[in-house]
Each structure stands twice: as structure tokens, then as C-alpha cells.
């Protein structure tokens, strides 16, 4: 039997788009920039440029704080190829205060067994000279110690 390798490799230039570029440039300045839908008023972060409910451009930038809550989370115990962080670690959906959509973030500075849905967290940024147009500008989220948000306040974001 003869085996023949036929490698396939393609390179692409990624275009994040106008709205997502604003989000990425905000990260390079150590802040979160979302966008508001002019029809339903929901704030998306990051915005892809449109409201997926109304199909209209989200033109208005909204500065968001770097505090929010954990809506749901997962304790990762399984090693996989390319893993950059030591296990166990916590991957959580973080809903920033004032946002209407959550995004994924790491949770640290707390034992995995103590993480809770509704737990209040705050972003820990990399050093100012390490900031860039990437989510890697956020090292992780840490607990603030504030009171947990009631389930009813975030159930629609699960």
C-alpha cells in the first residue's frame, strides 16, 4: 500500500468589520466598547455591526464598565492539544453591567468549587504596555466580593 500526503493550507486576512474593529480598538485602550440597537435598545458586545433581532446597523457606541456577573460557567478538567492554561480552570459566560449579551471569559483568584452563577466579577487587564486589539488584553475576571445577582436578573441571558 502506498500512502500519499496532500497537505492543504490556506491563509486568510481577517476583516473584523467596522463595529468589531471599534470593540478591538477599545480593548487596546483597556476598555469595553459595545453598540446599541436603535430599534430594541439592546447593547451588544462585541457587536458584529447589526442587531441580530432587528437586522439594522448598531451605530451607537456604548462604553461599558469592566464589571459584570457570571451567568453560567464550566470547570475545565480535561487537557487538550494547544491548552494554554493549567487545569482545572473556569470558563464562564460574563455579562457586563449594561450589556445584553454575554461573552466568554476566564475566572481566577477563586477556587473552582466556589464559583457561582450570578457571582459579581471584574476584569483584570494585562499591563498597559501589553494591551492590544485582542481579548487577550483581559487576563481574566476576578470576584469583586459583592452580593450575587438574583437568578431572575440574568435568566434570559442563559
Amino acid at each position: 500500500m502506498t500512502m500519499l500526503d496532500t497537505p492543504i493550507h490556506l491563509e486568510y486576512t481577517f476583516t473584523p468589520g467596522i463595529a468589531q474593529s471599534r470593540f478591538l480598538r477599545g480593548l487596546a485602550e483597556g476598555r469595553f466598547v459595545g453598540q446599541r440597537c436603535p430599534v430594541c435598545g439592546k447593547v451588544y458586545i462585541p457587536s458584529r455591526g447589526s442587531c441580530p433581532v432587528d437586522g439594522v446597523p448598531t451605530g451607537e457606541d456604548v462604553a461599558l464598565p469592566d464589571t459584570g456577573i457570571v451567568t453560567t460557567y464550566c470547570v475545565v478538567n480535561v487537557p487538550f492539544a494547544g491548552q494554554a492554561i493549567e487545569i482545572p480552570y473556569i470558563a464562564a459566560q460574563v455579562l457586563l453591567d449594561g450589556a445584553n449579551i454575554s461573552f466568554m471569559g476566564l475566572i481566577q483568584e477563586i477556587p473552582a468549587t466556589d464559583v457561582r452563577m450570578g457571582m459579581r466579577v471584574q476584569a483584570v487587564w494585562v499591563e498597559p504596555d501589553e494591551l492590544g486589539p485582542t481579548l487577550a488584553s483581559v487576563k481574566y475576571f476576578k470576584p469583586t466580593g459583592g452580593p450575587d445577582a438574583p437568578y431572575e436578573s440574568f435568566e434570559e441571558y442563559l
Binding site: 476583516t15 468589520g17 467596522i18 463595529a19 437586522g55 446597523p57
Partner: peptide, 14 residues
Amino acid sequence: DERNEVEMLMPVVA
């Protein structure tokens, strides 16, 4: 150079 697919499509669909 600037727009992603969604941003290209939105005005066309509108």
C-alpha cells in the same frame, strides 16, 4: 477593507 460580511449584506437586504 473595512466591512465584514454582515455589514456588506445589511444595506443590500434593506
